[in-house]
């Protein structure tokens, strides 16, 4: 009986769960019995790492690093899924260019950019992509990134549809240019987030570190951004299409806000698998949730455009997210129709 009590207490001690009274009893049981003493010391003692292992570790790391250097981005086998896409886009792009190149030359001064490789993420999925120049791009759900055919020759040009966080490797000789539906961002080496989904009426560019230049398609004006800044291009919803030059839009500069206890501004928290809202109007809230959980969420009340929501959620189920938003907005209602969730 006495002995089993010792085992129970030892098990608790390993887990750090001893109460002060139990600790006293435990210590007494150790002192009173040399067998207990031996077992306790064995359990509590952990050997340090011998120095021979440290050398071995250094060698193992050098070997690993050599292997990594040998597999430069060009040599890394591209997964077959991407290969197929690559071929498809190459064919598609060359056909498109064959037909439209003449027209483009007349209608615009812009150079024709040919994109080959594409990476894409499904709804509700996130992907990290390592680009051949050493830059890293995260794609949020339902997004696509295209690489220009001559990526890294004169410049590093990519096209983004959806949301992406860019950590661009420094290389002053090859500017990194991201184009999206209504603007272009030119950088030399920095970290920033762009949210530019086709079905949302705005494009938000958030700069975390470094410096970037943003050029809007409509105004041809260039905006220099400093870290901690966000530039929002809002489109007039009544206008025909986003890409249509006649639609009006407004450009707004705001400061990025880092919520309490977070490392990154709300705009980049999706990287840490956190669903975050920063004074987002309901249509953006609905779109974010829809893309996160791969569900169709519709707003059926124009009044809700004026309602905003702020908050960060981690590991929430869709039901919990909706409940939280309903609690914050007593006027909000919800119903399900077919496969869609309707907010009104």
């Amino acid at each position: 009986m006495d002995q089993d009590q010792f085992l129970t207490l030892l098990n608790k001690e390993i887990q750090g769960k001893l109460t002060p009274e139990e600790k006293l009893l435990f210590e007494k049981l150790i002192i009173d019995n040399p067998d207990h003493q031996l077992l306790y010391h064995f359990i509590k003692n952990r050997q340090g790492i011998p120095s021979s292992t440290i050398e071995k570790t250094e060698m193992a790391f050098d070997q690993l690093w050599k292997k990594l250097e040998d597999s430069t981005p060009e040599n890394i086998p591209v997964r077959s899924r991407i290969k197929k896409r690559y071929l498809f886009y190459l064919v598609a792009a060359s056909i498109a260019i064959f037909f439209f190149v003449g027209m483009w030359r007349y209608s615009s001064h812009q150079e024709v950019v040919e994109y080959k490789m594409s990476y894409s993420s499904n709804k509700g999925e996130k992907r990290i992509i390592s680009l051949p120049d050493g830059s890293t791009v995260w794609l949020n759900g339902d997004s696509k990134l295209y690489l220009a055919t001559d990526f890294n020759k004169k410049e590093r040009r990519v096209k983004l549809v959806g949301e992406g966080f860019f950590a661009v490797a420094k290389d002053k000789k090859h500017p990194f240019i991201v184009s999206c539906k209504d603007s272009e961002v030119k950088v030399l080496g920095t970290k920033f987030n762009i949210r530019a989904y086709q079905d949302e009426n705005k494009t938000q560019t958030s700069l975390v570190e470094g410096a970037i230049e943003l050029k809007s398609q409509n105004s041809d004006e260039t905006y220099r951004m400093v870290p901690g800044e966000k530039l929002t291009i809002a489109h007039n919803l009544i206008g025909p299409k986003f890409s249509d030059k006649s639609s009006t839009n407004t450009i707004k500069r705001t400061a990025l806000i880092v919520q309490d206890g977070e490392k990154m501004p709300s705009e980049a928290l999706w990287l840490e698998n956190k669903l975050s809202f920063e004074a987002d109007p309901m249509n953006i809230v609905a779109s974010k949730i829809g893309k996160w959980y791969n569900r169709n969420i519709v707003i059926d009340n124009t009044e809700l455009e004026k309602t905003t929501f702020t908050g960060t959620m981690e590991n929430y189920s869709l039901e919990m997210v909706l409940k939280t938003i309903l609690l914050a907005n007593p006027k909000l209602h919800i119903r399900e129709e077919n496969e869609s969730i309707i907010l009104y």
Partner: peptide, 28 residues
């Protein structure tokens, strides 16, 4: 948290090595 930002954003070899060295003997 610091390490993974350094590895992913800055492609920091030293951060990667720190991670490796910390776990290699026990993993082995």
């Amino acid at each position: 948290t610091e390490l993974r930002y350094a590895i992913v954003f800055d492609r920091d070899q030293l951060a990667f090595k720190t991670l490796f060295k910390k776990f290699y003997p026990d993993l082995y």
